[in-house]
Design a binder for these strands. Structure first.
Lengths: 231, 231
DNA sequence: ACAAAAGTGTTGTGCATACACCCATGG
DNA sequence: CCATGGGTGTATGCACAACACTTTTGT
C-alpha cells in the first residue's frame, strides 16, 4: 500500500497527562500556551512526533522538556483522532500519562513554560479535546490503581498512611474506613515504618513509612472491591 | 505550532483485530495480503485513515469492507508507532478490536479478500508488529471480559451454558468448576431459558439460553476473581 | 482542658471454593 | 446397557465491612 491522495498524511502529536498529589489532592499539570492560536489558554503539555521517534520516546521527551524529569514511566492512554479536534490543522494525538512526585518536579521545573497544577475539580477550560483526555486518564488511573500499587509514584519517598488513604479516596472519589484501609494496605505491601513523624496535619503526628527496598512481591488483590463500583 | 520540517507527517493506519468463537475455540480473522511487498503474508485487516475520517470511522469502514457487518461495536486497543514497524514507509497504526458472531460473518464475507480464521495457538507469522497487536488485544479481552459480559457478542443469539463456559475458559486460559460457573453466571446476568436443546455436543443435550431482552442491569462482579490472576 | 487527628481489634456475614452423584440420550 | 456430557446442592473458610474507643499533643 503506497501513498495515495485519498489517504491523509497527518501530523501526529503526543500529549502528556501528568498527575501529582499535593495538599491531599490529586492534581494535573497544565501549561498556558505561549503561541497562537489559542494563546494563553490552558492545555496538556504536548509536542509533535519527530522524524525518528516513536510515540513513547516523544512522550518521554516532552515530559523531560517540561519537568526535567527522566526515567519516569509513562503509559499510553488513548489516541484521539476526531477530524476537527484541532480546528487549525488535522492532527491526531496519542495521550500518555505519568505519575510524579510533585516535590521532585518543583525542583526541576522548566520555567520557559508557564505550568501550573490544577485539581480535577477546578480544571480550567482546556483547548481542543484535552478535557476528554483528562477524563480518560482519570478512568485509567482508577482501573490501574485498583490492580497495582502505582499510586505510590505520586508520593514522596516518605509518606504516612493517612496520606495514602487520602490519595486513594481522591482517585476513587470515595471514603474508606481507616482501620480496614490500614489493615489491607499493610497486608499487601511491604512498608517500612520509620521513627519519624509527620506533624503537619495533626498534633499527635503520623508515622512516616517508606516502601520496603526489595518490595517487588506485593500481594495486591488489595482495594479491588473498591474498584468494582468505580470501574 | 505550525508545520515544521522537524515534525513528521506520518501515514496513519487502523488495523482491525476481529475475534470470533467457533468449534469451542477463540479465533482471530486474518487476511492474506494480495499486494506487494509482503504479498501472501498474513496480517490483520487494515487501512489508512482517509481525509475526513476519524480513526473510529475508519476502523468501522475497514470492518465493513471485509465482513459486510455494520453497527458492530469496536474498541480502541492501542496505537503502535515504532519507527521501523513498517519497513517500507513510516506509518503509525491504531488498533481496534471487535467481537463478532462468527456465523453472521460467514454469511457476508467479502471474497475479494482471502480471509481466514485462526486459533490463537496456531497463529501464522504475521507482518510488522501484528503479532504484538494480537497479544495486546488478547490482554484487553481478558480485562474487559472480567468486568463486563462482552463475550456474549461472540456467541450466536442462542447459546448453551457449557458453550459460554468454554469461551471463558479459552479467554482466560483456565478451567472452571461447572457448578460454580453456572451459579455465578445465572446470578449475574438475566438469561432466558428456552425449551430447545442443543444436541450437537452431547446425547442428553444442553438447553439453549438467550440474553433477556431488557438485560441492561447485570450484576457483574462475576468472574472477577478469575481475573485476578490473569490480569 | 479540649480539640483534632492517629491508631487499634473484634465480630458477623456473604461469597467463592471444593467436591460427588444422578440424569437423559444416542449408539 | 453403557458411555458421554449436562445438570444439581452443600459445607467450609476467608476476606470484607461495620463498628467505638483510646492516645497524643498543640493550643
Amino acid at each position: 500500500m503506497s501513498n495515495n491522495s485519498r489517504y491523509i498524511s497527518s501530523l501526529v502529536a503526543v500529549d502528556c497527562l501528568i498527575f501529582g498529589f499535593q495538599d491531599q489532592t490529586l492534581k494535573v499539570l497544565l501549561i498556558k500556551r505561549n503561541l497562537k492560536p489559542y494563546q494563553n489558554e490552558w492545555s496538556l503539555m504536548g509536542g509533535f512526533l519527530q522524524n525518528k521517534e516513536s510515540a513513547e520516546i516523544a512522550a518521554a521527551r516532552v515530559l523531560t522538556e517540561l519537568t526535567g524529569l527522566t526515567g519516569v514511566s509513562m503509559e499510553q492512554i488513548k489516541t484521539f483522532s476526531k477530524v476537527y479536534r484541532d480546528p487549525t490543522e488535522r492532527t491526531i494525538s496519542i495521550v500518555y500519562s505519568s505519575l510524579i512526585d510533585i516535590n521532585k518536579f518543583e525542583a526541576q521545573l522548566n520555567h520557559e513554560y508557564e505550568a501550573q497544577w490544577f485539581t480535577l475539580k477546578e480544571l480550567p477550560k482546556l483547548i481542543f479535546d484535552h478535557e476528554d483526555m483528562v477524563e480518560e486518564g482519570r478512568n485509567f488511573l482508577r482501573k490501574k490503581a485498583a490492580l497495582q500499587p502505582i499510586l505510590f509514584e505520586l508520593l514522596a519517598e516518605k509518606f504516612t498512611i493517612p496520606q495514602i488513604q487520602q490519595l486513594y479516596e481522591e482517585v476513587f472519589e470515595a471514603t474508606f474506613d481507616k482501620r480496614n484501609f490500614r489493615r489491607k494496605l499493610l497486608g499487601s505491601i511491604l512498608l517500612e515504618k520509620l521513627d519519624e513523624k509527620d506533624k503537619l496535619s495533626s498534633k499527635k503526628g503520623a508515622f512516616y513509612y517508606r516502601l520496603d527496598k526489595q518490595t517487588k512481591h506485593y500481594n495486591f488483590s488489595i482495594l479491588l472491591n473498591l474498584a468494582y463500583s468505580s470501574l
